[in-house]
Design a protein around this nucleic acid. Structure first.
Lengths: 150, 150
DNA sequence: TATTGTTATACTCTATAACTATA
DNA sequence: TATAGTTATAGAGTATAACAATA
């Protein structure tokens, strides 16, 4: 290679590399977008899933988000401690907890969603609606070939 | 939401979330692809850049790859210790090191490139050539709006 | 003064193994 | 036996601040 427009050589045509950089760029901008809320990408993901599926348990949330059971514990603790998520023993299976959003959690989710919408528009400023839809479709196809996370 | 085809609610239409999952899926598959080589995504990236720009210094590599100076130190040390990269004091600027691949580094890069090509084909099995090109183009546009990394 | 590389440090994310209590 | 949650731990990535040597 070695042309001035591509100083990264063999990395340039690798989807894996470009995904990594794009994802990192989104992560940085996400953090700015939700600054002051105490939310992070992972915590926000949990709020979104629990909002969509109230009564879900934390293992199931982890499987949906690709987070291992062991790593869910501290995340859920953090959300419970902040009063964003309620955790109640499942009467039908006393090993499990039923998760749901508190009022504070719902407010937090809405606040973040508003900010994240702006963040996504900012990151995709040069994208047409069709291009954004195409990107989502292509990314979705990559994930659907994923294996489960134990 | 709450339809069974989308159990993740508000996350589904977020490019940032889908990027994160796709990137993570690539990372796992990358690790399998280069198993036994001792390479990781970050180390491989350095080899690729140094190969493309022999004589580059480590600060410049970090800026190209989005890795902070402080975090480059251990990575370069690791590559030098494994005999993959040569580090020579720049005679024109004795603060800096000129980096270049050793023969072993060139071999490692080629080995990894071969495996990574297979890995990319595997991850993008359902993609047409045009779809892969489109994905790369869209991802590239996201990165080009990035700010610099200090 | 600014820059290159460095050390020290801390936080997040991720991964595994072993445990408990329930099923 | 298997599963839900937990604890402990370790590796990797990433962030900042402060320093020495050099420019």
């Amino acid at each position: 290679m070695q042309d001035d427009t591509n100083p990264i050589g063999a990395l340039a045509p690798l989807v894996g590399y470009q995904l990594r950089r794009a994802s990192a760029a989104f992560a940085v901008n996400f953090a700015h977008a939700v600054e002051g809320t105490g939310m992070r990408q992972g915590l926000f993901g949990i709020l979104a899933v629990v909002s969509d599926q109230p009564g879900i348990n934390q293992g199931a949330v982890g499987r949906l988000l690709g987070v291992k059971r062991a790593n869910m514990v501290a995340l859920i603790n953090e959300l419970v401690d902040r009063g964003l998520i309620a955790r109640d023993v499942d009467p039908n299976d006393r090993r499990a907890f039923l998760l749901s959003l508190t009022d504070g959690g719902r407010t937090m989710l809405q606040t973040c969603l508003t900010r994240i919408d702006a963040h996504e528009r900012e990151m995709l400023a040069g994208f047409s609606f069709a291009e954004r839809a195409m990107l989502l479709e292509l990314l979705g196809r990559i994930e659907r070939r994923e294996t489960s996370t134990g």
